[in-house]
Amino acid sequence: MMSKFLGLLYGVRYVVLVVMVVSSLVNLFLFQGGRDVFWGVLLGQLWFGQCFYSFVSGREIVFSAGGGVGKDSNPYVRGLMGVVALFVYVMLFFFKGY
């Protein structure tokens, strides 16, 4: 069962995807950290971005190899994983190195 907000996000899921990809690319072009963490930030944004997009589109959310939340799982667990994925994705915009 989808909430109204998740139903709204599902309707504009491709717009969400384009906004996430474009904002990640802009962040990478403006990246001020060292080049040694550049690829880590890129990988993290791709990883957690796909997790959040999977949540929005109603697919299985895969956080690691063999670890994930199925599309028919408890909606509260799916919601928690979606929030965690979005939080980490956004926090990577502020990561500028160690």
Results as ranks from 00 to 15, higher is better:
residue 19 V to D: 00
residue 29 F to I: 11
residue 67 G to L: 15
residue 90 V to W: 04
residue 46 L to E: 00
residue 49 G to I: 03
residue 84 V to C: 08
residue 61 I to N: 03
residue 14 Y to N: 11
residue 24 S to Y: 11
residue 56 V to N: 01
residue 68 G to A: 01
residue 20 M to E: 09
residue 72 D to M: 10
residue 40 G to H: 04
residue 9 L to E: 01
residue 78 R to D: 02
residue 74 N to W: 11
residue 98 Y to N: 09
residue 84 V to L: 13
residue 91 M to H: 13
residue 81 M to Y: 15
residue 28 L to Y: 12
residue 58 G to F: 03
residue 10 Y to C: 06
residue 65 A to Y: 06
residue 22 V to M: 02
residue 75 P to E: 12
residue 83 V to F: 10
residue 13 R to F: 05
residue 8 L to W: 10
residue 50 Q to V: 04
residue 42 L to H: 06
residue 15 V to R: 08
residue 43 L to R: 11
residue 95 F to K: 08
residue 34 G to H: 15
residue 5 F to Y: 09
residue 36 D to T: 15
residue 46 L to R: 01
residue 43 L to A: 12
residue 80 L to I: 11
residue 87 F to G: 06
residue 51 C to A: 15
residue 21 V to P: 03
residue 78 R to M: 02
residue 38 F to R: 13
residue 68 G to C: 01
residue 39 W to E: 07
residue 84 V to S: 05
residue 14 Y to L: 12
residue 91 M to T: 08
residue 59 R to P: 02
residue 26 V to T: 04
residue 88 V to L: 10
residue 81 M to Q: 04
residue 56 V to I: 12
residue 60 E to T: 14
residue 3 S to M: 12
residue 10 Y to N: 14
residue 28 L to F: 08
residue 35 R to M: 15
residue 69 V to Q: 01
residue 48 F to N: 10
residue 79 G to W: 00
residue 72 D to G: 06
residue 59 R to I: 00
residue 79 G to P: 00
residue 1 M to H: 08
residue 52 F to I: 07
residue 18 V to K: 12
residue 65 A to E: 10
residue 95 F to Q: 08
residue 56 V to D: 04
residue 79 G to E: 04
residue 18 V to E: 09
residue 66 G to D: 00
residue 54 S to D: 14
residue 86 L to R: 04
residue 6 L to A: 02
residue 79 G to F: 03
residue 49 G to E: 09
residue 28 L to A: 14
residue 52 F to R: 04
residue 34 G to Y: 15
residue 49 G to C: 02
residue 77 V to K: 02
residue 78 R to G: 00
residue 74 N to P: 01
residue 18 V to S: 10
residue 17 L to G: 09
residue 82 G to M: 05
residue 65 A to P: 15
residue 21 V to Y: 08
residue 93 F to K: 04
residue 73 S to K: 07
residue 75 P to R: 07
residue 43 L to Y: 08
residue 2 M to N: 13
residue 42 L to C: 10
residue 71 K to D: 09
residue 17 L to A: 15
residue 9 L to V: 02
residue 76 Y to M: 11
residue 63 F to T: 11
residue 83 V to P: 12
residue 28 L to R: 09
residue 23 S to M: 06
residue 28 L to Q: 08
residue 49 G to W: 00
residue 60 E to I: 10
residue 22 V to S: 11
residue 41 V to T: 06
residue 12 V to T: 13
residue 90 V to M: 15
residue 43 L to F: 14
residue 28 L to S: 12
residue 36 D to E: 03
residue 72 D to V: 07
residue 6 L to R: 11
residue 92 L to P: 04
residue 8 L to K: 10
residue 89 Y to R: 02
residue 1 M to C: 05
residue 3 S to D: 13
residue 6 L to N: 09
residue 31 F to T: 07
residue 25 L to W: 14
residue 57 S to A: 12
residue 90 V to T: 03
residue 89 Y to L: 08
residue 23 S to P: 05
residue 54 S to N: 13
residue 57 S to K: 09
residue 26 V to E: 06
residue 35 R to C: 05
residue 91 M to V: 14
residue 10 Y to A: 01
residue 15 V to E: 00
residue 55 F to R: 00
residue 3 S to A: 06
residue 85 A to Y: 06
residue 29 F to Y: 11
residue 21 V to Q: 09
residue 50 Q to E: 13
residue 29 F to W: 15
residue 20 M to R: 03
residue 80 L to C: 14
residue 76 Y to T: 08
residue 57 S to I: 07
residue 60 E to L: 05
